[in-house]
């Protein structure tokens, strides 16, 4: 069923192009996070590997961007902007929400390993879903190859830097990802509730004040204004 869903999401060329361009941004962001990780680590081996990984992410960004732009150019001019349907198939999250500065080498490696594993799984699905678009499927296939390397090196390095606590770090990273997913959902729900309440206030409470504000605006002359007298330094107003 998931396969059919992915096929449906990827079938439309306009949506496909937009999603690829979004992926490009996510990969580029991920690359910057890895550069930051390379800047912060004291371990020269990890520094080198993170640098290579960052370069890969930048390369992926370029591949996605190139293919996305190609698809965009091939679209008819009147082609309407389609929703990415990210709520239906979240697609590439990359390393978003990652706070590199707050992570130890081991916890970062565990996080990266899980992220790469998830990405590899998604990309594998997309390759299958894109049977009708071999060029885009080839892009995913090429990236998938790199993701496999990333998945393997992060696990190997985790074994090196925390040989006895590998499992612990991986479980912590799994729980961290679940916690972040929970926070994302809760923040989205809170956002919706906040918007509904504020919109209700907007239409219930604001109209009389809006009337007064509009009247005051009409009376305001155009052009230069006298600056207000200097206010006390301890005032926020």
């Amino acid at each position: 069923m998931m396969q059919s869903l992915h096929r449906f999401v990827w079938r439309d060329a306009a949506r496909r192009a937009r999603k690829l361009l979004d992926f490009a941004e996510t990969e580029a962001d991920g690359g910057r996070d890895l550069v930051r990780a390379a800047e912060l680590t004291k371990d020269p081996v990890l520094r080198r590997l993170y640098t290579v990984h960052a370069a890969d992410e930048e390369k992926h960004a370029a591949l996605f961007r190139g293919r996305g732009a190609e698809l965009m150019r091939a679209l008819p001019i009147s082609s309407p902007a389609k929703s990415r349907l990210n709520w239906l198939t979240p697609g590439e999250r990359g390393l978003d929400d990652l706070r590199v500065d707050e992570k130890s080498d081991a916890s970062l490696l565990a996080f990266l390993h899980l992220s790469e594993k998830t990405a590899a799984r998604h990309f594998g699905t997309y390759v299958d879903a894109l049977r009708d678009d071999p060029s885009t499927a080839a892009v995913f296939r090429e990236i998938l190859h790199d993701e496999t390397f990333h998945m393997n090196y992060t696990l190997a390095q985790l074994n090196r830097v925390a040989p006895r606590q590998r499992g612990l770090y991986l479980w912590r990273a799994r729980l961290g990802r679940l916690w972040k997913a929970y926070l994302r959902i809760m923040a989205a729900i809170a956002g919706v509730i906040g918007s509904v309440l504020l919109t209700a206030q907007y239409f219930i409470l604001i109209p009389p004040f809006a009337f007064l504000a509009k009247r005051a605006e009409r009376r305001e002359p155009d052009g230069w204004k006298q600056p207000p007298a200097e206010r006390p330094f301890n005032s926020q107003y």
């Binding site: 906040g194 918007s195 504020l198 919109t199 907007y202 239409f203 604001i206 109209p207 004040f209 809006a210 007064l212 504000a213 509009k214 605006e217 206010r231 005032s235 926020q236 107003y237």
Partner: peptide, 25 residues
């Protein structure tokens, strides 16, 4: 001055009523 800035944001939302209903929240 953060409060004065907020005053501007709120006043602009009021002036643009009802067009500002999406941006207000």
């Amino acid at each position: 001055r953060p409060m004065l800035k907020f005053d501007r944001i709120l006043t602009c939302a009021l002036r643009a009523f009802p067009r500002s209903w999406r941006s207000f929240p």
